[in-house]
């Protein structure tokens, strides 16, 4: 039988949940080994950052959707954390193969890298839920629909006070590292990329910076 929008949405969410390890709110033993191989062990920093960002996320989610929905925000955040750990592990495996190194101390102690990666994981989770809300018309009543729109990209950048440029940097590696992403989600991430490139990555100083880099061939063409 033809798939209804509601069934399609349920399947997407089920797939997202099913693809993630159930014990994934903690790093796997393999990921923990990568942490231990670092010159400076990033484990505590990562835990603290997750606690802090989890509180900010739940609070802002509640402000956008309503205080009675904070628990849903927390649930989405936890799902995002599982995806964040899973993708981080895949990225490190790929980097280990490519660079023949096991010490990723600098990368794993880079707060911007972690925040960007977590933001991307959460964008995937949110898009899976929100896309279904749009498709099945579940939020056709004005207030709910507005709340869902409020959570759309670039909402997550404001929540984590993350620059669009830094978020942009993780997208491609994220897609490479997570082969189970649906084509709708990949399309969504590509839309985010285009939105960043065409609109929100540009600042007043960007044009000055472009002018200062005339020697780079791409920049010459751009000018």
């Amino acid at each position: 039988p033809p798939q209804t929008p509601i069934r399609a949405a349920m399947n997407s969410i089920k797939m997202l949940r099913g693809d993630l390890p159930s014990s994934g709110d903690q790093p796997s033993s393999k990921l923990a080994t990568y942490f231990k191989n670092c010159t400076v062990d990033p484990t505590q920093g990562i835990q603290k950052r997750l606690e802090m960002l989890g509180q900010v996320f739940s609070q802002m989610f509640g402000e956008a959707v309503g205080p009675h929905c904070i628990a849903y925000g927390r649930e989405r955040f936890n799902l995002g954390v599982r995806l964040y750990y899973k993708v981080m592990e895949a990225m490190l495996e790929s980097e280990e193969k490519r660079l023949s190194v096991q010490n990723f101390s600098k990368l794993l102690n880079d707060s911007t890298f972690h925040t960007s990666l977590l933001a991307c994981a959460l964008e995937v989770v949110m898009a899976t839920y929100e896309e279904s809300s749009f498709k099945n018309g579940g939020c056709s009543h004005g207030e709910g629909e507005q709340a869902v729109r409020d959570l759309c990209f670039p909402w997550i950048l404001n929540v984590f006070d993350l620059s669009a440029f830094d978020f942009y940097k993780v997208i491609e590696s994220f897609i490479k590292a997570e082969p189970t992403l649906s084509k709708e989600i990949i399309k969504h991430l590509e839309t985010c990329e285009n939105f960043i490139m065409e609109k929100i990555a540009w600042r007043t100083v960007s044009f000055t910076n472009v002018s200062l880099n005339r020697r780079i061939p791409h920049v010459c063409r751009l000018l």
Partner: peptide, 21 residues
Amino acid sequence: SHDYHFGLEEHEGISELFDCD
């Protein structure tokens, strides 16, 4: 699958993007 355009070269990865070697 969706035809995503991968722009990174073979020798580039997340480490280079965050300035780590």
